[in-house]
Simulated assay, not measured.
Amino acid sequence: MYLENLVFDALDPQRLGGFWEAVVGGETLTDEPGIYETRLAIEGGPVLDLCFQQVTEPASAPPRIHLDLRGGARQAAEVDRLLGLGAERLDIGQGDVPWVVLADVEGNACCVMEERAAYSDTGPIAALPLDSADPDWDAAFWSWLTGWTEVVGPAPRSLRHPSLRGPLLELCPEPAPKGATKNRLHLDVRLESGEDPDEVEAAIVEHGGSRLHTNWGDLPWRSYLDPSGNEFCALPAH
């Protein structure tokens, strides 16, 4: 398996997807009613698709995963660029911190980070901080699930693509346990050719995850929860 998608719930997929495509310099893959997809290819590293699927209700719970954007020496200029694209400054009680918190065009929080050695060669997305009830357990789970390897980072546990390029997946202590509300942003993994979905499901459960049974109709992928209750999907092999 490998990490393929960052999936956003969106009231207006074209507007939100267009914003993020401009932010990361992506390439449009899909632009159809109810869905927008853009591809971020990191030279020598992972290929990640940002997918925007239409929902009817605005976000109602604090995010458990968000995007940290690389700013570095150009932090102020990057903030200005995002504001020009439609982002707004956001106060979530962060206080005096070296990063800048913004809201995208649908109010989702993101951060523009200061210079950090850990974020070299990440591309435009520096990190994906994910709330975790147990960063050690979740790091082991996500490393097994994606093939990403542990690296030194600002979070208690951080993972990265084996190329050591692209964003970090940062397992951060959760401020509160996961509630029943679905995460507004989730990750998708893709099965490799020859991997059996039933065997993968059994292994997910063995590693501490669980199947998420939904009423979303007959879909070609399966939905799961990680050990901390964060949703993810396992897509069939191409």
Rank of each mutant, 00 (worst) to 15 (best):
E206L: 01
P154D: 09
S158Q: 04
G209R: 04
H186C: 07
R89N: 07
P162V: 03
H207P: 06
E114W: 04
E43T: 15
E88D: 13
S228F: 03
E231Q: 14
D196G: 07
L90D: 05
G123F: 03
V200A: 06
I42P: 05
N183E: 14
Y119F: 15
A103H: 03
A127L: 01
V47A: 12
A76Y: 04
L130I: 11
Q75V: 11
E114V: 07
Y119W: 08
A41S: 15
A59P: 04
N5F: 11
P162I: 10
L185C: 02
C233M: 06
W142K: 10
P129L: 04
N108E: 14
S163V: 08
P135W: 08
N183K: 07
R15V: 13
Q94P: 00
L187C: 09
A237D: 08
L128F: 14
E201Q: 09
G123H: 09
A10K: 10
V200Q: 09
D188G: 12
I125S: 08
P124I: 10
N108G: 11
C111I: 05
R74Y: 03
A59H: 06
A41P: 00
E114C: 07
D49T: 15
V55H: 00
Y36C: 01
E32D: 13
P162A: 05
D136M: 02
A133K: 06
D188F: 05
V23P: 09
L168S: 12
L191D: 01
E43G: 11
E231W: 03
H207S: 00
L235I: 14
D80F: 00
I92M: 14
L212R: 05
E199T: 12
T28Y: 01
R160V: 08
E4R: 15
G84R: 04
V55Q: 01
W148T: 08
G194K: 00
G71Y: 09
Q53I: 14
P58N: 00
H186I: 03
W221Y: 13
L69A: 05
D12M: 10
T181K: 07
D96I: 10
G217E: 02
A202F: 04
E231T: 14
D80A: 08
R70W: 15
P177Q: 07
G72Y: 04
E21W: 06
E106F: 13
S132T: 08
R39W: 05
A140F: 03
V189I: 15
R160N: 03
P173S: 00
D131M: 02
L130M: 12
R116W: 04
S223M: 06
L29R: 13
P197I: 04
D121I: 00
